[in-house]
Design a protein around this nucleic acid. Structure first.
Lengths: 291, 291
DNA sequence: TTCATATGTAACCCAGACTTACATATCGAA
DNA sequence: TTCGATATGTAAGTCTGGGTTACATATGAA
Protein backbone atom coordinates (compact mmCIF):
# COMPACT_ATOMS: atom_id res chain seq x y z
CA UNK A 1 0.00 0.00 0.00
CA UNK A 2 1.41 3.33 -1.03
CA UNK A 3 0.21 5.51 1.83
CA UNK A 4 2.34 8.48 1.04
CA UNK A 5 0.57 9.38 -2.19
CA UNK A 6 -2.92 9.07 -0.74
CA UNK A 7 -4.82 12.33 -0.28
CA UNK A 8 -5.89 13.23 3.28
CA UNK A 9 -8.41 10.64 4.38
CA UNK A 10 -10.66 13.35 5.78
CA UNK A 11 -11.02 14.85 2.34
CA UNK A 12 -11.82 11.47 0.80
CA UNK A 13 -14.44 10.88 3.45
CA UNK A 14 -15.98 14.29 2.83
CA UNK A 15 -16.08 13.62 -0.89
CA UNK A 16 -17.68 10.24 -0.39
CA UNK A 17 -20.33 11.73 1.85
CA UNK A 18 -20.98 14.46 -0.68
CA UNK A 19 -21.27 11.94 -3.50
CA UNK A 20 -23.85 10.10 -1.45
CA UNK A 21 -25.90 13.12 -0.42
CA UNK A 22 -25.38 15.30 -3.52
CA UNK A 23 -25.33 18.34 -1.29
CA UNK A 24 -22.77 19.84 1.06
CA UNK A 25 -25.21 20.62 3.83
CA UNK A 26 -26.47 17.07 4.13
CA UNK A 27 -23.00 15.65 3.70
CA UNK A 28 -21.93 17.80 6.62
CA UNK A 29 -24.85 16.52 8.66
CA UNK A 30 -23.86 12.95 7.89
CA UNK A 31 -20.38 13.60 9.26
CA UNK A 32 -21.45 15.86 12.10
CA UNK A 33 -19.69 18.87 10.69
CA UNK A 34 -20.71 22.14 9.10
CA UNK A 35 -21.29 22.62 5.39
CA UNK A 36 -18.22 24.85 5.26
CA UNK A 37 -16.03 22.00 6.43
CA UNK A 38 -17.23 19.84 3.53
CA UNK A 39 -16.74 22.65 1.07
CA UNK A 40 -13.17 23.11 2.21
CA UNK A 41 -12.33 19.43 2.20
CA UNK A 42 -13.64 19.06 -1.34
CA UNK A 43 -11.21 21.74 -2.44
CA UNK A 44 -8.39 20.10 -0.58
CA UNK A 45 -9.07 16.85 -2.39
CA UNK A 46 -9.28 18.37 -5.84
CA UNK A 47 -6.17 20.41 -5.19
CA UNK A 48 -4.29 17.38 -3.96
CA UNK A 49 -5.26 15.15 -6.85
CA UNK A 50 -5.08 17.78 -9.55
CA UNK A 51 -8.22 16.38 -11.11
CA UNK A 52 -11.55 18.12 -11.56
CA UNK A 53 -13.92 15.94 -9.57
CA UNK A 54 -16.77 18.41 -9.32
CA UNK A 55 -18.66 20.48 -11.77
CA UNK A 56 -19.29 23.79 -10.07
CA UNK A 57 -21.31 25.40 -12.81
CA UNK A 58 -24.85 26.11 -11.77
CA UNK A 59 -26.41 26.36 -8.39
CA UNK A 60 -25.82 22.79 -7.32
CA UNK A 61 -22.57 20.90 -7.65
CA UNK A 62 -22.38 17.65 -9.51
CA UNK A 63 -19.71 15.06 -10.04
CA UNK A 64 -17.62 14.92 -13.17
CA UNK A 65 -16.93 11.57 -14.81
CA UNK A 66 -13.72 11.33 -12.79
CA UNK A 67 -15.64 12.23 -9.67
CA UNK A 68 -18.16 9.48 -10.26
CA UNK A 69 -15.37 7.01 -10.75
CA UNK A 70 -13.71 7.99 -7.50
CA UNK A 71 -17.01 8.04 -5.66
CA UNK A 72 -17.72 4.45 -6.63
CA UNK A 73 -14.34 3.31 -5.38
CA UNK A 74 -14.72 5.23 -2.14
CA UNK A 75 -18.17 3.83 -1.53
CA UNK A 76 -16.84 0.32 -1.91
CA UNK A 77 -13.69 0.98 0.09
CA UNK A 78 -15.23 2.80 3.01
CA UNK A 79 -18.16 0.41 2.87
CA UNK A 80 -15.90 -2.59 3.36
CA UNK A 81 -14.14 -0.86 6.22
CA UNK A 82 -17.33 0.25 7.90
CA UNK A 83 -18.90 -3.17 7.61
CA UNK A 84 -15.91 -4.88 9.19
CA UNK A 85 -15.75 -2.39 12.03
CA UNK A 86 -19.46 -2.67 12.69
CA UNK A 87 -19.31 -6.44 12.69
CA UNK A 88 -16.46 -6.54 15.19
CA UNK A 89 -18.03 -3.99 17.48
CA UNK A 90 -21.43 -5.58 17.53
CA UNK A 91 -20.10 -9.12 17.83
CA UNK A 92 -19.12 -8.17 21.36
CA UNK A 93 -22.15 -6.18 22.23
CA UNK A 94 -24.76 -8.92 22.43
CA UNK A 95 -22.72 -10.76 25.04
CA UNK A 96 -23.71 -9.78 28.59
CA UNK A 97 -21.28 -8.02 30.88
CA UNK A 98 -19.69 -10.65 33.08
CA UNK A 99 -18.96 -9.43 36.60
CA UNK A 100 -17.05 -11.41 39.19
CA UNK A 101 -17.58 -10.26 42.79
CA UNK A 102 -17.84 -11.44 46.35
CA UNK A 103 -21.25 -12.53 47.49
CA UNK A 104 -21.26 -10.05 50.35
CA UNK A 105 -20.67 -7.15 48.01
CA UNK A 106 -23.31 -8.47 45.68
CA UNK A 107 -25.88 -8.88 48.42
CA UNK A 108 -25.18 -5.75 50.42
CA UNK A 109 -24.32 -3.20 47.80
CA UNK A 110 -24.94 -4.18 44.21
CA UNK A 111 -28.24 -6.08 44.27
CA UNK A 112 -30.25 -3.26 45.87
CA UNK A 113 -29.03 -0.90 43.15
CA UNK A 114 -29.44 -3.17 40.16
CA UNK A 115 -33.04 -2.23 39.37
CA UNK A 116 -31.84 1.31 38.79
CA UNK A 117 -29.28 0.06 36.24
CA UNK A 118 -31.82 -2.11 34.46
CA UNK A 119 -34.08 0.89 34.20
CA UNK A 120 -31.45 3.06 32.54
CA UNK A 121 -29.78 0.40 30.38
CA UNK A 122 -32.29 -2.33 29.63
CA UNK A 123 -30.24 -3.33 26.61
CA UNK A 124 -27.19 -4.38 28.61
CA UNK A 125 -27.27 -7.87 30.08
CA UNK A 126 -25.36 -8.68 33.24
CA UNK A 127 -23.96 -11.89 34.64
CA UNK A 128 -23.11 -11.58 38.34
CA UNK A 129 -20.70 -14.28 39.29
CA UNK A 130 -20.14 -14.43 43.07
CA UNK A 131 -16.90 -16.21 43.72
CA UNK A 132 -14.49 -15.67 46.59
CA UNK A 133 -11.27 -15.96 44.59
CA UNK A 134 -9.78 -13.77 41.96
CA UNK A 135 -10.52 -15.05 38.51
CA UNK A 136 -8.76 -14.63 35.23
CA UNK A 137 -9.86 -11.57 33.38
CA UNK A 138 -9.73 -12.26 29.71
CA UNK A 139 -11.55 -11.22 26.55
CA UNK A 140 -14.54 -13.44 26.07
CA UNK A 141 -14.68 -14.36 29.76
CA UNK A 142 -15.03 -12.25 32.87
CA UNK A 143 -15.14 -8.56 31.97
CA UNK A 144 -14.65 -7.00 35.37
CA UNK A 145 -14.05 -8.11 38.95
CA UNK A 146 -14.93 -6.23 42.11
CA UNK A 147 -12.45 -7.02 44.82
CA UNK A 148 -11.55 -5.79 48.27
CA UNK A 149 -8.02 -4.63 49.01
CA UNK A 150 -5.61 -1.77 48.76
CA UNK A 151 -5.34 -1.81 44.97
CA UNK A 152 -2.15 -1.69 42.98
CA UNK A 153 -2.36 -5.31 41.87
CA UNK A 154 0.07 -6.09 39.10
CA UNK A 155 -1.03 -7.03 35.62
CA UNK A 156 -4.46 -5.47 35.93
CA UNK A 157 -6.01 -2.03 36.09
CA UNK A 158 -7.89 -1.16 39.24
CA UNK A 159 -9.75 1.85 40.50
CA UNK A 160 -11.21 2.45 43.93
CA UNK A 161 -14.96 2.07 43.95
CA UNK A 162 -15.86 2.25 47.65
CA UNK A 163 -13.39 3.01 50.44
CA UNK A 164 -14.26 1.22 53.66
CA UNK A 165 -12.11 -0.45 56.35
CA UNK A 166 -12.49 -4.00 57.62
CA UNK A 167 -14.10 -4.22 61.03
CA UNK A 168 -14.66 -6.93 63.62
CA UNK A 169 -18.31 -6.83 64.67
CA UNK A 170 -20.86 -8.73 66.72
CA UNK A 171 -24.39 -8.34 68.00
CA UNK A 172 -24.66 -6.90 71.53
CA UNK A 173 -26.56 -9.98 72.73
CA UNK A 174 -23.51 -12.10 72.03
CA UNK A 175 -21.19 -9.80 73.90
CA UNK A 176 -23.44 -9.42 76.91
CA UNK A 177 -22.10 -6.83 79.34
CA UNK A 178 -18.40 -7.41 78.92
CA UNK A 179 -16.38 -4.76 77.17
CA UNK A 180 -12.64 -4.53 76.45
CA UNK A 181 -12.55 -7.64 74.30
CA UNK A 182 -9.00 -8.70 73.42
CA UNK A 183 -8.37 -10.77 70.33
CA UNK A 184 -7.78 -13.75 72.60
CA UNK A 185 -11.16 -13.20 74.25
CA UNK A 186 -12.84 -12.98 70.89
CA UNK A 187 -11.26 -16.26 69.84
CA UNK A 188 -13.41 -18.00 72.41
CA UNK A 189 -16.66 -16.74 70.85
CA UNK A 190 -18.31 -18.44 67.87
CA UNK A 191 -17.19 -17.01 64.51
CA UNK A 192 -19.19 -16.66 61.36
CA UNK A 193 -17.15 -17.07 58.24
CA UNK A 194 -18.04 -17.27 54.60
CA UNK A 195 -17.45 -20.69 53.13
CA UNK A 196 -14.06 -20.89 51.50
CA UNK A 197 -12.61 -17.73 52.98
CA UNK A 198 -10.04 -17.35 55.70
CA UNK A 199 -10.16 -13.69 56.67
CA UNK A 200 -11.40 -14.40 60.20
CA UNK A 201 -8.71 -16.96 61.02
CA UNK A 202 -6.10 -14.72 59.38
CA UNK A 203 -7.11 -11.76 61.47
CA UNK A 204 -6.89 -13.71 64.72
CA UNK A 205 -3.64 -15.34 63.67
CA UNK A 206 -2.18 -11.94 62.89
CA UNK A 207 -2.84 -11.03 66.54
CA UNK A 208 -1.46 -14.19 68.13
CA UNK A 209 -4.84 -15.80 68.77
CA UNK A 210 -6.63 -18.77 67.26
CA UNK A 211 -10.24 -19.80 67.22
CA UNK A 212 -10.72 -21.79 70.42
CA UNK A 213 -11.75 -25.42 70.28
CA UNK A 214 -14.92 -24.85 72.29
CA UNK A 215 -16.09 -21.81 70.37
CA UNK A 216 -16.59 -23.28 66.97
CA UNK A 217 -16.38 -21.73 63.56
CA UNK A 218 -19.62 -21.45 61.66
CA UNK A 219 -19.10 -21.57 57.92
CA UNK A 220 -22.08 -20.28 56.04
CA UNK A 221 -22.72 -19.16 52.48
CA UNK A 222 -21.62 -15.57 51.99
CA UNK A 223 -25.11 -14.18 51.72
CA UNK A 224 -26.01 -15.49 55.19
CA UNK A 225 -23.09 -14.08 57.15
CA UNK A 226 -24.69 -10.72 57.83
CA UNK A 227 -28.03 -12.30 58.71
CA UNK A 228 -26.33 -14.56 61.26
CA UNK A 229 -24.37 -11.63 62.59
CA UNK A 230 -27.49 -9.60 63.27
CA UNK A 231 -29.16 -12.64 64.87
CA UNK A 232 -26.32 -12.80 67.36
CA UNK A 233 -24.95 -16.11 66.11
CA UNK A 234 -21.33 -15.04 66.10
CA UNK A 235 -18.53 -12.57 65.60
CA UNK A 236 -17.34 -11.83 62.11
CA UNK A 237 -15.03 -9.69 60.07
CA UNK A 238 -16.61 -7.63 57.38
CA UNK A 239 -16.43 -4.40 55.50
CA UNK A 240 -17.65 -1.56 57.68
CA UNK A 241 -19.80 -0.07 54.96
CA UNK A 242 -22.17 -3.06 54.99
CA UNK A 243 -22.98 -2.74 58.69
CA UNK A 244 -22.74 1.00 59.03
CA UNK A 245 -26.45 1.47 59.69
CA UNK A 246 -26.48 -1.35 62.22
CA UNK A 247 -23.55 0.18 64.08
CA UNK A 248 -25.16 3.61 64.14
CA UNK A 249 -28.42 2.38 65.57
CA UNK A 250 -26.73 0.06 68.06
CA UNK A 251 -27.83 -3.24 66.63
CA UNK A 252 -24.19 -4.18 65.99
CA UNK A 253 -21.08 -3.35 68.00
CA UNK A 254 -17.80 -2.47 66.32
CA UNK A 255 -14.94 -4.13 68.21
CA UNK A 256 -11.89 -3.51 66.06
CA UNK A 257 -11.28 -1.50 62.94
CA UNK A 258 -8.40 -1.81 60.50
CA UNK A 259 -7.30 1.72 59.74
CA UNK A 260 -5.92 1.01 56.32
CA UNK A 261 -6.72 2.56 52.99
CA UNK A 262 -8.49 -0.50 51.65
CA UNK A 263 -11.78 -0.70 49.88
CA UNK A 264 -13.61 -2.28 46.99
CA UNK A 265 -11.99 -1.82 43.63
CA UNK A 266 -13.12 -2.26 40.09
CA UNK A 267 -10.54 -4.53 38.51
CA UNK A 268 -10.26 -4.81 34.76
CA UNK A 269 -7.83 -6.42 32.36
CA UNK A 270 -5.31 -4.22 30.60
CA UNK A 271 -7.11 -4.63 27.32
CA UNK A 272 -9.73 -2.43 25.72
CA UNK A 273 -13.13 -2.48 27.38
CA UNK A 274 -16.23 -3.14 25.32
CA UNK A 275 -18.60 -0.20 25.17
CA UNK A 276 -21.13 -1.98 27.41
CA UNK A 277 -18.50 -2.66 30.04
CA UNK A 278 -17.50 0.98 30.01
CA UNK A 279 -21.13 1.92 30.52
CA UNK A 280 -21.49 -0.41 33.49
CA UNK A 281 -18.24 0.76 35.09
CA UNK A 282 -19.28 4.37 34.66
CA UNK A 283 -22.61 3.64 36.29
CA UNK A 284 -20.92 1.84 39.21
CA UNK A 285 -18.69 4.82 39.87
CA UNK A 286 -21.55 7.26 39.77
CA UNK A 287 -23.50 5.10 42.22
CA UNK A 288 -20.56 4.93 44.59
CA UNK A 289 -20.10 8.69 44.55
CA UNK A 290 -23.67 9.46 45.47
CA UNK A 291 -23.80 7.18 48.53
CA UNK B 1 -22.83 4.74 5.10
CA UNK B 2 -22.83 5.24 8.83
CA UNK B 3 -19.94 7.65 9.22
CA UNK B 4 -20.59 8.59 12.78
CA UNK B 5 -19.74 5.22 14.24
CA UNK B 6 -16.52 4.85 12.30
CA UNK B 7 -13.32 5.10 14.35
CA UNK B 8 -10.88 7.89 13.46
CA UNK B 9 -9.58 7.17 9.97
CA UNK B 10 -6.04 7.95 11.10
CA UNK B 11 -6.16 5.12 13.58
CA UNK B 12 -7.52 2.71 10.98
CA UNK B 13 -4.75 3.71 8.61
CA UNK B 14 -2.14 3.21 11.32
CA UNK B 15 -3.54 -0.21 12.12
CA UNK B 16 -3.58 -1.22 8.48
CA UNK B 17 0.03 -0.15 8.06
CA UNK B 18 0.99 -2.06 11.18
CA UNK B 19 -0.81 -5.18 9.98
CA UNK B 20 1.15 -4.94 6.76
CA UNK B 21 4.57 -4.32 8.31
CA UNK B 22 4.15 -6.31 11.54
CA UNK B 23 6.18 -3.69 13.34
CA UNK B 24 5.48 -0.20 14.59
CA UNK B 25 8.76 1.28 13.42
CA UNK B 26 8.28 0.22 9.81
CA UNK B 27 4.61 1.11 9.88
CA UNK B 28 5.65 4.58 10.98
CA UNK B 29 8.14 4.76 8.14
CA UNK B 30 5.45 3.78 5.66
CA UNK B 31 3.29 6.67 6.84
CA UNK B 32 6.11 9.16 7.37
CA UNK B 33 5.57 9.35 11.10
CA UNK B 34 7.40 8.20 14.20
CA UNK B 35 6.91 4.81 15.82
CA UNK B 36 5.32 6.55 18.80
CA UNK B 37 2.57 7.94 16.60
CA UNK B 38 1.66 4.44 15.45
CA UNK B 39 1.74 3.10 18.97
CA UNK B 40 -0.66 5.79 20.12
CA UNK B 41 -3.03 5.38 17.19
CA UNK B 42 -3.26 1.65 17.78
CA UNK B 43 -4.39 2.35 21.31
CA UNK B 44 -6.91 4.90 20.10
CA UNK B 45 -8.40 2.34 17.74
CA UNK B 46 -8.66 -0.44 20.31
CA UNK B 47 -10.10 1.98 22.82
CA UNK B 48 -12.64 3.25 20.33
CA UNK B 49 -13.78 -0.17 19.20
CA UNK B 50 -13.60 -1.85 22.57
CA UNK B 51 -12.14 -4.93 20.95
CA UNK B 52 -8.71 -6.46 21.55
CA UNK B 53 -7.09 -6.26 18.14
CA UNK B 54 -3.50 -6.80 19.25
CA UNK B 55 -1.74 -9.35 21.36
CA UNK B 56 0.84 -7.45 23.35
CA UNK B 57 2.39 -10.39 25.14
CA UNK B 58 6.01 -10.93 24.23
CA UNK B 59 8.48 -8.68 22.60
CA UNK B 60 6.67 -8.23 19.33
CA UNK B 61 3.00 -7.44 18.88
CA UNK B 62 0.77 -9.65 16.84
CA UNK B 63 -2.81 -9.48 15.68
CA UNK B 64 -5.62 -11.27 17.44
CA UNK B 65 -8.22 -13.10 15.39
CA UNK B 66 -10.36 -9.96 15.43
CA UNK B 67 -7.35 -7.93 14.41
CA UNK B 68 -6.68 -10.18 11.45
CA UNK B 69 -10.29 -9.86 10.40
CA UNK B 70 -10.18 -6.10 10.53
CA UNK B 71 -6.80 -5.98 8.81
CA UNK B 72 -8.14 -7.92 5.84
CA UNK B 73 -11.07 -5.57 5.45
CA UNK B 74 -8.85 -2.51 5.77
CA UNK B 75 -6.41 -3.86 3.21
CA UNK B 76 -9.21 -4.35 0.73
CA UNK B 77 -10.90 -1.08 1.54
CA UNK B 78 -7.88 1.17 1.50
CA UNK B 79 -6.55 -0.79 -1.45
CA UNK B 80 -9.61 -0.03 -3.53
CA UNK B 81 -9.40 3.62 -2.57
CA UNK B 82 -5.70 3.88 -3.27
CA UNK B 83 -6.02 2.18 -6.63
CA UNK B 84 -8.79 4.50 -7.76
CA UNK B 85 -6.90 7.58 -6.66
CA UNK B 86 -3.73 6.43 -8.33
CA UNK B 87 -5.57 5.67 -11.54
CA UNK B 88 -7.19 9.09 -11.68
CA UNK B 89 -4.00 10.92 -10.87
CA UNK B 90 -1.90 9.10 -13.42
CA UNK B 91 -4.55 9.19 -16.13
CA UNK B 92 -3.88 12.90 -16.30
CA UNK B 93 -0.17 12.74 -15.99
CA UNK B 94 0.70 11.18 -19.34
CA UNK B 95 -1.10 13.95 -21.17
CA UNK B 96 1.25 16.78 -22.11
CA UNK B 97 0.82 20.25 -20.62
CA UNK B 98 -1.04 22.33 -23.18
CA UNK B 99 0.05 25.97 -23.26
CA UNK B 100 -1.66 28.66 -25.27
CA UNK B 101 0.47 31.76 -25.87
CA UNK B 102 1.20 34.51 -28.36
CA UNK B 103 3.81 33.71 -30.93
CA UNK B 104 5.91 36.69 -29.94
CA UNK B 105 6.10 35.52 -26.34
CA UNK B 106 6.90 32.03 -27.49
CA UNK B 107 9.65 33.13 -29.83
CA UNK B 108 11.21 35.83 -27.70
CA UNK B 109 10.94 34.47 -24.20
CA UNK B 110 9.85 30.89 -23.86
CA UNK B 111 11.63 29.06 -26.66
CA UNK B 112 15.13 30.11 -25.60
CA UNK B 113 14.42 28.80 -22.09
CA UNK B 114 12.73 25.55 -23.00
CA UNK B 115 15.87 23.43 -23.15
CA UNK B 116 16.41 24.21 -19.48
CA UNK B 117 12.93 22.89 -18.66
CA UNK B 118 13.40 19.75 -20.70
CA UNK B 119 16.63 19.11 -18.82
CA UNK B 120 14.98 19.35 -15.41
CA UNK B 121 11.66 17.69 -16.26
CA UNK B 122 12.17 15.33 -19.16
CA UNK B 123 9.03 13.43 -18.11
CA UNK B 124 6.69 16.34 -18.73
CA UNK B 125 5.55 16.85 -22.30
CA UNK B 126 4.59 20.29 -23.56
CA UNK B 127 2.33 21.48 -26.35
CA UNK B 128 2.95 25.12 -27.24
CA UNK B 129 -0.04 26.50 -29.06
CA UNK B 130 0.63 29.98 -30.45
CA UNK B 131 -2.68 31.67 -31.07
CA UNK B 132 -3.48 35.34 -30.87
CA UNK B 133 -6.87 35.03 -29.22
CA UNK B 134 -7.87 33.90 -25.79
CA UNK B 135 -8.95 30.28 -25.80
CA UNK B 136 -11.24 28.34 -23.57
CA UNK B 137 -9.43 26.88 -20.61
CA UNK B 138 -11.01 23.59 -19.75
CA UNK B 139 -10.04 20.25 -18.29
CA UNK B 140 -8.78 18.01 -21.05
CA UNK B 141 -7.95 20.96 -23.30
CA UNK B 142 -5.69 23.95 -22.81
CA UNK B 143 -4.11 23.89 -19.37
CA UNK B 144 -2.69 27.38 -19.19
CA UNK B 145 -2.59 30.51 -21.31
CA UNK B 146 0.03 33.23 -21.25
CA UNK B 147 -1.54 36.55 -22.12
CA UNK B 148 -0.61 40.20 -22.09
CA UNK B 149 -2.70 42.66 -20.15
CA UNK B 150 -3.38 44.15 -16.77
CA UNK B 151 -4.79 41.01 -15.21
CA UNK B 152 -7.97 40.75 -13.26
CA UNK B 153 -9.89 38.94 -15.98
CA UNK B 154 -13.12 37.48 -14.73
CA UNK B 155 -13.77 33.78 -14.58
CA UNK B 156 -10.12 32.82 -14.57
CA UNK B 157 -7.14 32.97 -12.23
CA UNK B 158 -4.19 35.02 -13.37
CA UNK B 159 -0.83 35.88 -11.94
CA UNK B 160 1.73 38.31 -13.28
CA UNK B 161 4.61 36.56 -14.95
CA UNK B 162 6.59 39.35 -16.54
CA UNK B 163 5.83 43.03 -16.12
CA UNK B 164 6.68 45.08 -19.19
CA UNK B 165 4.97 48.05 -20.90
CA UNK B 166 3.94 48.25 -24.53
CA UNK B 167 6.20 50.41 -26.64
CA UNK B 168 6.16 51.82 -30.14
CA UNK B 169 9.48 51.07 -31.79
CA UNK B 170 11.24 51.28 -35.09
CA UNK B 171 14.72 50.83 -36.56
CA UNK B 172 16.75 54.05 -36.81
CA UNK B 173 17.19 53.58 -40.58
CA UNK B 174 13.45 53.95 -41.01
CA UNK B 175 13.29 57.09 -38.95
CA UNK B 176 16.29 58.74 -40.64
CA UNK B 177 17.23 61.98 -38.93
CA UNK B 178 13.83 63.18 -37.92
CA UNK B 179 12.93 63.13 -34.23
CA UNK B 180 9.78 64.30 -32.42
CA UNK B 181 7.48 61.86 -34.13
CA UNK B 182 3.83 62.54 -33.43
CA UNK B 183 1.30 59.76 -33.77
CA UNK B 184 0.10 61.41 -36.96
CA UNK B 185 3.62 61.36 -38.37
CA UNK B 186 4.02 57.73 -37.47
CA UNK B 187 0.80 56.91 -39.26
CA UNK B 188 2.50 57.79 -42.52
CA UNK B 189 5.23 55.19 -42.01
CA UNK B 190 4.80 51.52 -42.87
CA UNK B 191 3.52 49.43 -39.93
CA UNK B 192 4.33 45.85 -39.12
CA UNK B 193 1.46 44.02 -37.52
CA UNK B 194 0.94 40.43 -36.60
CA UNK B 195 -1.68 38.73 -38.71
CA UNK B 196 -5.04 38.85 -37.04
CA UNK B 197 -4.18 41.43 -34.40
CA UNK B 198 -5.22 45.04 -34.23
CA UNK B 199 -3.01 46.56 -31.53
CA UNK B 200 -1.26 48.88 -33.98
CA UNK B 201 -4.43 50.35 -35.48
CA UNK B 202 -5.95 50.58 -32.02
CA UNK B 203 -3.00 52.52 -30.69
CA UNK B 204 -3.13 55.06 -33.51
CA UNK B 205 -6.88 55.31 -33.34
CA UNK B 206 -6.62 55.97 -29.62
CA UNK B 207 -4.50 58.99 -30.49
CA UNK B 208 -6.66 60.38 -33.28
CA UNK B 209 -4.53 59.07 -36.13
CA UNK B 210 -5.03 56.37 -38.68
CA UNK B 211 -2.63 54.43 -40.85
CA UNK B 212 -2.23 56.56 -43.95
CA UNK B 213 -3.21 55.22 -47.33
CA UNK B 214 0.27 55.61 -48.75
CA UNK B 215 2.08 54.03 -45.87
CA UNK B 216 0.75 50.53 -45.96
CA UNK B 217 0.20 47.99 -43.26
CA UNK B 218 2.40 44.94 -43.45
CA UNK B 219 0.73 41.92 -41.91
CA UNK B 220 3.18 39.19 -41.15
CA UNK B 221 3.15 36.06 -39.03
CA UNK B 222 3.89 36.88 -35.42
CA UNK B 223 7.31 35.31 -35.39
CA UNK B 224 8.48 37.60 -38.19
CA UNK B 225 7.42 40.94 -36.70
CA UNK B 226 10.60 41.45 -34.73
CA UNK B 227 12.79 40.38 -37.62
CA UNK B 228 11.09 42.88 -39.92
CA UNK B 229 11.40 45.54 -37.23
CA UNK B 230 15.15 45.08 -36.92
CA UNK B 231 15.49 45.09 -40.70
CA UNK B 232 13.86 48.50 -40.78
CA UNK B 233 10.75 47.39 -42.63
CA UNK B 234 8.34 49.24 -40.40
CA UNK B 235 7.14 50.61 -37.09
CA UNK B 236 5.44 48.31 -34.67
CA UNK B 237 3.97 48.03 -31.22
CA UNK B 238 5.43 45.39 -29.00
CA UNK B 239 6.29 44.52 -25.46
CA UNK B 240 9.35 46.42 -24.34
CA UNK B 241 10.96 43.39 -22.79
CA UNK B 242 11.42 41.72 -26.19
CA UNK B 243 13.38 44.59 -27.67
CA UNK B 244 15.14 45.74 -24.55
CA UNK B 245 18.60 44.71 -25.77
CA UNK B 246 18.05 46.32 -29.17
CA UNK B 247 16.99 49.57 -27.53
CA UNK B 248 20.01 49.58 -25.24
CA UNK B 249 22.51 49.05 -28.05
CA UNK B 250 20.76 51.52 -30.35
CA UNK B 251 19.60 49.10 -33.01
CA UNK B 252 15.99 50.04 -32.20
CA UNK B 253 14.51 53.35 -31.18
CA UNK B 254 11.74 53.60 -28.58
CA UNK B 255 9.21 56.20 -29.70
CA UNK B 256 6.36 55.90 -27.23
CA UNK B 257 5.85 53.90 -24.07
CA UNK B 258 2.56 53.06 -22.37
CA UNK B 259 3.15 53.65 -18.68
CA UNK B 260 0.61 51.17 -17.45
CA UNK B 261 0.96 48.21 -15.12
CA UNK B 262 0.51 45.63 -17.83
CA UNK B 263 2.54 42.55 -18.45
CA UNK B 264 2.39 38.87 -19.33
CA UNK B 265 0.20 36.82 -17.07
CA UNK B 266 -0.18 33.14 -16.46
CA UNK B 267 -3.88 32.48 -16.88
CA UNK B 268 -5.42 29.29 -15.56
CA UNK B 269 -8.93 27.98 -15.17
CA UNK B 270 -10.52 28.04 -11.72
CA UNK B 271 -10.26 24.29 -11.48
CA UNK B 272 -7.58 22.18 -9.90
CA UNK B 273 -4.26 22.07 -11.73
CA UNK B 274 -2.69 18.75 -12.54
CA UNK B 275 0.60 18.16 -10.80
CA UNK B 276 2.52 18.57 -14.09
CA UNK B 277 0.85 21.90 -14.75
CA UNK B 278 1.80 23.10 -11.30
CA UNK B 279 5.38 22.09 -11.98
CA UNK B 280 5.46 24.01 -15.23
CA UNK B 281 3.88 27.11 -13.73
CA UNK B 282 6.34 27.01 -10.86
CA UNK B 283 9.22 26.76 -13.30
CA UNK B 284 7.88 29.68 -15.37
CA UNK B 285 7.71 31.89 -12.31
CA UNK B 286 11.20 31.00 -11.19
CA UNK B 287 12.50 31.78 -14.68
CA UNK B 288 10.75 35.14 -14.72
CA UNK B 289 12.18 36.10 -11.34
CA UNK B 290 15.75 35.42 -12.31
CA UNK B 291 15.73 37.49 -15.50
C1' DT C 1 -36.53 41.99 -8.69
C1' DT C 2 -36.79 39.41 -4.93
C1' DC C 3 -36.70 35.38 -2.27
C1' DA C 4 -34.99 30.88 -1.29
C1' DT C 5 -31.49 27.79 -1.83
C1' DA C 6 -26.74 26.33 -2.42
C1' DT C 7 -22.00 27.06 -2.13
C1' DG C 8 -17.81 29.96 -1.22
C1' DT C 9 -14.63 32.48 1.82
C1' DA C 10 -12.24 34.79 5.71
C1' DA C 11 -10.53 34.49 10.04
C1' DC C 12 -9.96 32.59 13.97
C1' DC C 13 -9.85 28.34 17.34
C1' DC C 14 -8.92 23.99 19.22
C1' DA C 15 -8.49 18.98 19.57
C1' DG C 16 -5.91 15.56 18.19
C1' DA C 17 -2.00 13.91 15.82
C1' DC C 18 2.80 14.28 16.00
C1' DT C 19 7.59 14.70 17.90
C1' DT C 20 11.18 14.14 21.13
C1' DA C 21 13.18 12.04 24.81
C1' DC C 22 13.19 8.74 27.92
C1' DA C 23 11.42 4.33 30.00
C1' DT C 24 10.40 -0.39 29.95
C1' DA C 25 10.11 -5.14 28.47
C1' DT C 26 11.71 -9.29 26.12
C1' DC C 27 14.92 -12.25 23.77
C1' DG C 28 19.21 -14.27 22.75
C1' DA C 29 24.05 -14.67 23.37
C1' DA C 30 28.05 -14.70 26.13
C1' DT D 1 22.25 -13.71 34.92
C1' DT D 2 24.00 -10.09 32.77
C1' DC D 3 24.31 -7.52 28.82
C1' DG D 4 23.22 -5.70 24.41
C1' DA D 5 19.97 -5.45 20.82
C1' DT D 6 15.44 -5.01 19.57
C1' DA D 7 10.66 -3.68 20.18
C1' DT D 8 7.14 -1.13 22.27
C1' DG D 9 5.27 2.15 25.82
C1' DT D 10 4.74 6.72 27.96
C1' DA D 11 5.04 11.75 29.17
C1' DA D 12 4.77 16.19 27.85
C1' DG D 13 4.62 19.67 24.99
C1' DT D 14 4.02 21.61 20.03
C1' DC D 15 1.72 22.59 16.05
C1' DT D 16 -1.29 22.33 12.27
C1' DG D 17 -5.19 20.52 9.93
C1' DG D 18 -9.80 20.34 10.32
C1' DG D 19 -13.29 22.71 12.28
C1' DT D 20 -16.47 26.77 13.50
C1' DT D 21 -18.88 31.09 12.83
C1' DA D 22 -20.31 34.75 10.27
C1' DC D 23 -20.74 36.77 6.23
C1' DA D 24 -20.55 36.86 1.06
C1' DT D 25 -21.83 35.31 -3.36
C1' DA D 26 -24.19 32.91 -7.06
C1' DT D 27 -28.14 30.73 -9.23
C1' DG D 28 -32.84 29.53 -10.19
C1' DA D 29 -37.65 30.22 -9.52
C1' DA D 30 -41.61 33.05 -8.88
Amino acid sequence: MNWKSLPPLTSLRAFSAFAEKKNVVQAGAALNVSHAAISQQLRVLEEHMGVALLDRSGKTMSLTAEGEHLARALHLGFGAIGAAVEELVRSGSDRPVHVSLTSSFAASWLMPRLPAFRAVHPEIGLILDPSPELVELRPGGVDIAIRYGEGGWSGVDSQMLLRSPMVIVAAPELLEDKSDWTPADLAELPWLQEVGTTEASMWLAGRGAEIGPGAGRIEVPGNLVLDGLRAGQGVTITVRHFVEQDILNGRIVELYSEPDAAGYHIVTARSPMRAEVKTFVGWLKRQARQV
